[in-house]
Amino acid sequence: MTAYALAHLFPEPPLHDDVFVYMERIQETMDPFGGRFIVHAAHTEVIEGPFEGGYVIIEFPDMDEARAWYTSDAYQAILAMRTDNIPGTTVLLQGTPPNYDAAATGRALRAAQAG
């Protein structure tokens, strides 16, 4: 099942040169794990609530590939170029199956909460 790496980042101009090197090298770290950018440096249109920063979303074939990419020697070798220069939070998220039913999930959560 598809998985995602989601980063909520807060870049402050001017960007350090290390950030550009990181951007130039990240794709080669993702390729062996089937990673591809879904969102990267896109314009954000805020339609509800407060918002700061920007998002990066990378898709992987599954959670194992996402974890393997993040912990890979190749990615770890460039990671500090971003984290030392752009604050933010990064998480790995499991995608939903093709036939996901939000209503069924809502009913199950309601039943569990009712105890």
Rank of each mutant, 00 (worst) to 15 (best):
I58M: 13
L92F: 05
F60Y: 06
M30G: 00
F37E: 10
T44S: 10
T29K: 05
A3N: 11
T89D: 10
H8W: 15
L79K: 11
P98H: 06
T29L: 01
A108H: 12
M81K: 09
V46H: 09
D62H: 15
P97F: 11
I57K: 04
Y4N: 11
P61G: 02
Q94K: 08
D17P: 06
A41T: 06
P13E: 09
T96A: 14
G35L: 02
T2C: 06
H8T: 13
H40C: 11
F20T: 12
A104Y: 09
T44Y: 08
R67P: 00
A102C: 04
Q76S: 03
E45K: 04
M1V: 13
E28Y: 00
I38P: 00
T71A: 12
Y100F: 14
R36T: 08
T83V: 03
D18K: 06
G95L: 13
G49H: 08
E48W: 05
A41P: 15
L109K: 12
I38Q: 11
S72H: 05
R67L: 15
D64P: 00
F37Q: 08
P97A: 14
V91C: 04
R110Y: 09
V46I: 15
M63Q: 01
A66G: 05
Y22S: 06
L9D: 07
F20W: 13
A108Q: 12
V21I: 10
D18S: 02
A7W: 05
I38V: 15
I58V: 15
A68V: 06
D62T: 09
A42G: 11
Y75G: 01
L92H: 03
G53W: 07
L109S: 13
T71G: 10
A41R: 13
R110P: 01
L15V: 01
I26R: 02
I26Y: 02
V21T: 15
G95Y: 14
